[in-house]
Simulated scan of single mutants.
Amino acid sequence: MRIAFLVAPQGVEQIELTEPWKALESAGHEPVLVSTRAGEIRAFDHLDKADAFPVDDVVGETWAGSFGALVLPGGVASPDFLRMDPGAVAFVKEFFVRGRPVAAICHAPWTLVEADVVRGRTLTSWPSIRTDIRNAGGTWVNEQVVICADGPNKLVTSRKPDDLKAFCDAVVEVFAAETD
């Protein structure tokens, strides 16, 4: 299955991009790096610049329907940039409209809040996002990983890089169920 990894041109937490990418690739999926601009994205290790990665597809030039699932890596800046981009927000919302699974870690639920897709859902995130989730009608819980099926799709969320093992395991399991 083709899986979109949506990130802004800069500010994604590198390990939250690379670890799920490797896990899904090892499970036989095709990860595709999608951003709001062509070229490269710049990842970060917390607040320090890390590696650059080539963009495969650009929001507005690719179609959400061509992907079987979506992963939203965190980092403070990337989700904040994405939620300010109407094309990125529409791209995210389309996965919910189509009933396709979505996974988000750390600060990434900011983009979900902006897409208005957390109402009635239970999810987790970096703790500073909990009020935004509650104000958007979601239920925030402080758990390592949450799989929520109370909506049009399955939503997998996690809190932080320390939870990556559980997050990757859940994402691989949920996405595999979609290909059966």
Rank of each mutant, 00 (worst) to 15 (best):
G75K: 00
G74E: 01
L17C: 10
P73W: 13
P161V: 12
L70N: 09
S158D: 10
D150C: 04
E30M: 08
F44E: 06
E25F: 06
P86H: 15
P54I: 00
E114M: 08
G11V: 09
A115H: 13
V97S: 12
R42M: 09
V171Q: 01
L82F: 14
D45H: 11
A4K: 12
F95E: 07
V58M: 08
Q14C: 03
A149D: 15
V118E: 13
Q144L: 03
A52L: 05
L112M: 14
A103L: 00
W126T: 04
H29D: 13
F96W: 12
A166L: 04
D180R: 07
T62L: 01
R134Q: 15
V12Y: 07
I147A: 05
D132C: 02
F96T: 05
D169F: 04
W63P: 00
T179P: 00
N153C: 15
A90K: 06
K165V: 13
R134H: 11
T124W: 03
L17E: 06
D163G: 12
A108R: 01
R159A: 09
A108D: 05
E143M: 14
N135M: 03
P101F: 09
M84H: 14
A149Q: 14
R119T: 14
G99K: 02
D56W: 12
N153G: 10
V55W: 09
A52R: 11
K22Y: 15
D169Y: 01
R121N: 06
P31R: 02
E16K: 02
V145S: 01
